[in-house]
Design a protein around this nucleic acid. Structure first.
Length: 786
DNA sequence: CTTTACCCACTTTTT
DNA sequence: GTGGGTAAAG
């Protein structure tokens, strides 16, 4: 008998062993959800279920990769190769490649990312002679995307009265027409966008009963991670697939639903029980990740939300430290503070770089942290943001490859037809576009034969040469592997030469990026297939199919492992870190300015706050800055309302001790702003504590030690030092053991020891009232008594 | 036709 | 502060 079941608690084990019938697992943060899912799959395999019969869907590549890895390590063999584990998008893309002809698409269809999609929309808006101030690309794209995620095709969209009046009210009555044209063009270009991967999958199953039958039969066991984040399309597809065998297991946590902007509807998890008969509901409520303090704070926060499934998250872990609250003066100070704190923690508690994460609400906030970490010599990695494949030079190069594989891919063709510049300018392109539109053919077809166009002379000549070159590439498509062909493209097209010629810093970086792309293609060609597909095909087309849905974070270099992680809170879902810095806790940033108007989106922001708090295993810092640069100008933001929602007895305002002083850090109790917001909080405190969270506190056996901490903190606060009027910090390098020093907050004391290196000297100071403290001299602001 | 110089809109969050 | 788009200059 296998031992893997013994590692599970009773509820986890029940979830694993309940393999038949519909199961809903409500899994709180850190309750071992991934462990349950992976063990469950291993258990199925162990009980003679064929890997081919199992489908497991996740939302991110990261989650899918982790599941695969963990199943392999449980099984100790590569039986998992035949499993279908992946994101909704990548699994459906794989199926759609095989079924493409049924839908009229080529199996080598291109996948448009949102940039491609937006460019196409922009083109259409222009062709329709619409005002792009009214028909903003992002808005139109958003409308189309939501329609697709709700499985509304263009004709239904146009005919739907309520949608029509909604668009009319917004003064955008033509969106339906744009949507129709957009779909037509995607189809003609042999391209699907992200949303099509869902919608076309649905159409395949809905319109082809034999395919539905086939996939129902094939996927007898279906598991879905993060079910609270599914949208209507995902829901419908899964529902159809599972209808026959009804062995469907969904895992989710309504408290962590943070993707409604992408069409996710919390309804799906709430109504699951109505969709199937005899649904087994299993709750996982024991948290194995975080300290009691963190869990308590998290429960308090989420307790403020109205809409939720009642649950009681608890932990047996130690009480842990209080939440460290830090205010800084500027965003750069915030960056510096975090870098210094990481340095200090590493020295003091022997943490590795990988034990730290800096989590922010928007990608744009990463800059100040990048800068400070670089200066401090701390290695880091930014996840998300502009991924490698989205960089202009990489996209340009890939555009060549895309056209070689699929000539109809018009977005790619437009990128490269005059890159590097070959004398095919705007006027020429406009003429070509016009002819294409009149004849209703693709741009590629138009440029095959220029006789019907009014393009001539140098431009016509260039186009002919371009066409010849692309045809030449296409001829090698089957004879050359991906790397050989890509290398050829780089050289013949002139891209490499063009990039090499630019000797500026950015230009060199671009050149290196393209070289890196070529390297990765080479690696792809030389590495064995681990996809589970039995294909030794290393052609360019298979390569492209493999990368389009890879956003980033796939290059898990060993050397990259022990680094500080920077990412958005959305990106951090499912991950855990010993030390978490939740940064930029300011009104208009977090909660986002967009969310302040209605309760629902504010609650979603609060769930997001819940997510970031529950990422932390041991220590959680919450930082915010008085001022920061946004859109290039200085703005000042109020502290986030979420800060007030943390029970104040769990907050250590003095944590930043050494940082207090003019450079900010911690709450200065002389500014009454903070106590005001606390008074506000006190009045509403009762409403904040739900029954379930209160129970969690009562169950908390070692609250005493937390109380003890709170008492200690109170004692610390009992003294108040007013610095001398002429207080001026001394040069940190001049401070020696034995000096009598004054600190702005801790008062007078004596330096008893100094350790640490040249630029991060740490002094141990015995203060008369504040006791013994270890302070980093670079920012402690100590004045030596003469 | 290409390069340069300004202007603007941009910041939620992801596949 | 950036990147893309447009208008004028080369």
């Amino acid at each position: 008998m296998s031992t893997y079941l013994n590692d599970l608690n009773p509820n986890q084990r029940a979830a694993v062993e309940q393999t038949q019938g519909p199961v809903m697992i409500v899994a709180g943060a850190g309750s071992g959800k991934t462990k349950v899912l992976t063990t469950r799959i291993a258990h199925l395999l162990n009980n003679d279920v064929d890997a081919f019969r199992i489908l497991a869907l996740t939302f991110t590549n990261k989650a899918a990769a982790e599941m695969k890895e963990r199943i392999e390590s449980i099984l100790g063999n590569n039986e998992s190769r035949n499993l279908y584990i992946g994101t909704f998008h990548s699994i459906f893309a794989r199926i759609l490649r095989q079924e493409a002809p049924k839908l009229g698409y080529p199996s080598s269809f291109t996948i448009y990312d949102s940039d491609d999609a937006k460019n196409l929309i922009k083109t259409i808006v222009k062709e329709f002679n619409l005002d792009d101030k009214i028909y903003k690309t992002n808005t139109v794209y958003g409308r189309i995307s939501s329609a697709k995620n709700a499985l509304i095709p263009p004709m239904d969209y146009i005919q739907d009265k309520s949608i029509g009046s909604e668009d009319a009210r917004a003064n955008k009555p033509m969106i339906g027409q744009i949507y129709a044209e957009y779909s037509k063009r995607c189809f003609r270009n042999g391209a699907m966008d992200f949303d099509d991967l869902l919608m076309k999958m649905y159409e395949l199953l809905a319109q082809h009963p034999d395919r539905l039958e086939y996939y129902q039969q094939r996927f007898q066991y279906i598991m879905i991670d993060e079910y609270q984040d599914t949208n209507v399309a995902q829901y419908k597809i899964v529902d159809m697939l599972a209808k026959k065998h009804k062995n469907i297991c969904v895992v989710g946590d309504d408290a962590q639903s943070i993707y409604s902007f992408r069409g996710a509807t919390i309804e799906n998890i709430l109504k699951f029980k109505d969709d199937y008969e005899n649904v087994k509901v299993i709750k996982l409520e024991q948290n194995y990740r975080s300290t009691k303090s963190i869990i308590h704070v998290a429960n308090q926060i989420i307790g403020r939300n109205k809409n939720q499934i009642p649950k009681n998250l608890w932990t047996d872990n130690k009480a842990g430290d209080l939440i460290k609250l830090v205010r800084t003066r500027t965003d750069n100070d915030e960056g510096r503070y975090v870098a210094d704190a990481i340095k200090e923690q590493k020295l003091r508690n022997h943490y590795d770089n990988k034990d730290f994460a800096i989590l922010y609400r928007t990608n744009a906030q990463s800059r100040s942290f990048e800068e400070s970490l670089r200066k401090a010599g701390i290695p880091y990695r930014i996840y998300g943001g502009l991924s490698f494949y989205q960089r202009k030079e990489v996209k340009d190069f890939i555009a060549y490859l895309r056209v070689v594989v699929n000539q109809r891919d018009e977005e790619a063709l437009k990128r490269i037809i005059n890159y590097p510049t070959r004398g095919i300018g705007k006027v020429t392109l406009d003429r070509l576009a016009l002819t294409s539109m009149q004849n209703d053919v693709s741009l590629w077809e138009t440029i095959q034969n220029l006789s019907g166009t009014n393009v001539s002379g140098g431009a016509a000549n260039s186009i002919q040469n371009f066409v010849l070159m692309m045809r030449y590439f296409q001829e090698s498509l089957t004879s050359k592997n991906a790397y050989e062909l890509a290398d050829e493209v780089g050289k013949q097209s002139g891209i490499i030469k063009d990039l090499y010629a630019d000797k500026s810093v950015e230009g060199m970086a671009r050149y290196e990026n393209v070289q890196e792309l070529l390297n990765s293609i080479k690696e792809y060609v030389e590495s064995p297939n681990e996809d589970g597909e039995v294909e030794e095909d290393k052609s360019l087309s298979t390569y492209l199919q493999n990368i389009t849905l890879l956003t980033d974070q796939d290059n898990n270099n060993e050397e990259d492992k022990n680094v500080v992680s920077l990412m958005t809170i959305h990106g951090s879902k499912g991950l855990e870190f010993k030390n978490v810095f939740a940064v930029g806790l300011e009104e208009n940033i977090f909660p986002s300015a967009m969310s302040l108007f209605d309760r629902e989106s504010l609650e979603e922001e609060r769930r997001l706050f819940y997510v970031v708090v529950t990422r932390a295993e041991e220590n959680l810092w919450i930082t915010h800055s008085n001022t920061r640069y946004r859109f290039g100008s200085l703005v000042s933001n109020e502290p986030s309302r979420f800060i007030d929602e943390i029970p104040k007895e769990y907050v250590d305002m003095n944590y930043s001790g050494g940082l207090s002083g003019s450079s900010g850090g911690g709450f200065n109790r002389n500014t009454n702003e903070f106590s005001e917001s606390y008074n506000k909080y006190d009045k509403s405190a009762r409403y904040g504590t739900s029954k379930s969270t209160r129970k969690a506190i009562d169950n908390n056996t070692s609250t005493t030690s937390i109380k003890e901490q709170i008492l200690q903190k109170k004692r610390k606060e009992d003294f108040e030092h007013v610095p001398a009027q002429n207080f001026e910090p001394s040069d940190p390098d001049s401070i020696e053991v034995g000096d009598r020093v004054e600190h702005t907050k801790f008062g007078y004391g004596k330096v008893v020891n100094i350790d640490g290196g040249m630029h991060n000297r740490i002094a141990t100071v015995e203060f008369e009232k504040a006791g013994s403290r270890r302070l980093m001299l670079t920012f402690a602001k100590l004045s030596v008594e003469k």
